[in-house]
Design a protein around this nucleic acid. Structure first.
Lengths: 126, 126
DNA sequence: GCCCTATGTGAATAAATATACAACAAAAGA
DNA sequence: TCTTTTGTTGTATATTTATTCACATAGGGC
C-alpha cells in the first residue's frame, strides 16, 4: 500500500500545486488513500521532496552541504557590505557601490598602501 | 540592512547546511545580523528559497556546496592587526594600537555610524 | 501453535514556520 | 517644519510539519 501511495504522491506533486500536507492528504483521499498528516510527513521525508514557492517538488539534486560554524570571513564581510577595493596614493578605499558608507585605510606610504590593497584583493579572490 | 542580510542568507545557504530558521538566525547573528525568526520567515519567502533534505536552498539551481578552504575571518584579521573599534561622530575608527595603518569608516550620519559600529562589535563578539 | 523482530500507522504532542497586528522609522508631500 | 504614507520589524499567536509513543500486523524460526 505504501509504495502505491508514494507513486500517487509523486504523481500529484508533479502535476499539481500541493501547498501543504493537509492538502496532499485531501487529494490522496479522493484517490482512495486515506492516511493522516503524520504518515505524509514520513512519506515526504522518504521521497526526499522539497517544499518551496511552488509547493512540494521532487528534489533535483541533493546538495551535500557542510556544517559551518566559522566566524565571517573578510570576503564575506566586504561582500555583505557590497564593497569594492581601490588604492589612491597612500590610501586604500573600500567604497560601497550604492554609496552609503565609505571605508578608508590610511597607510604610512604608497608602498604600504599597495601591499594592503594587494592583500585585500587576495583575500577577496580566495 | 535588509538587502545585505539577504545577501548573507544566500551566501550561507549556498555554502552550508541550514536546517531551520532558528539555525539560520544564529549563523546570521555571528555575521552581525541580529533578527528574529519571523523576519527570516519573510526573507526566505522573498528570496524564494526551498526547504528539502539538504536544508534551505536557492530555488533555481541546487548549490554545488564545495569544500571550504575558507579565507581569513574578520575577527582574525582585526585581531592580527591589533585593532579596536571606536565610533567618533559619523565615523567608525578601526585603529591599530601600534599605529601603522588606520581604518576609517565614513558614514552619512551619526546614527548610521552607530549601526556600523554595533554590527562590527557583534561580529567580533561571536 | 508461540515468540521475536520488522514495518507501518494513528493519536497526541513537540517543533518549526507563517502571519496578524502594533510600533517605529524613513521617505514623500504639503 | 508637520503630516501622511510606505516599509521593516518584533511580539504573540496561528498554522503547519516532525516526532514520540502505543498498537497492530506480517513474516520467520522454533
Amino acid at each position: 500500500m505504501k509504495d502505491q501511495r508514494h507513486n500517487a504522491i509523486r504523481e500529484l506533486v508533479g502535476h499539481a500545486l500541493v501547498a501543504s500536507q493537509d492538502e496532499l492528504r485531501r487529494k490522496l483521499r479522493r484517490r482512495g488513500f486515506a492516511v493522516t498528516q503524520a504518515t505524509l510527513s514520513r512519506d515526504i521525508h522518504e521521497l526526499r521532496l522539497s517544499k518551496g514557492p511552488g509547493g512540494y517538488t521532487l528534489s533535483k539534486t541533493a546538495g551535500a552541504a557542510v556544517e559551518d560554524n566559522s566566524p565571517p570571513s573578510v570576503a564575506e564581510m566586504i561582500e555583505s557590505f557590497g564593497m569594492r577595493v581601490k588604492q589612491a596614493m597612500n590610501q586604500v578605499v573600500l567604497g560601497t557601490v550604492a554609496g552609503d558608507d565609505t571605508v578608508l585605510v590610511i597607510c604610512p606610504d604608497i608602498r604600504r598602501a599597495g601591499e594592503v590593497e594587494s592583500r585585500l584583493r587576495t583575500m577577496l579572490e580566495s
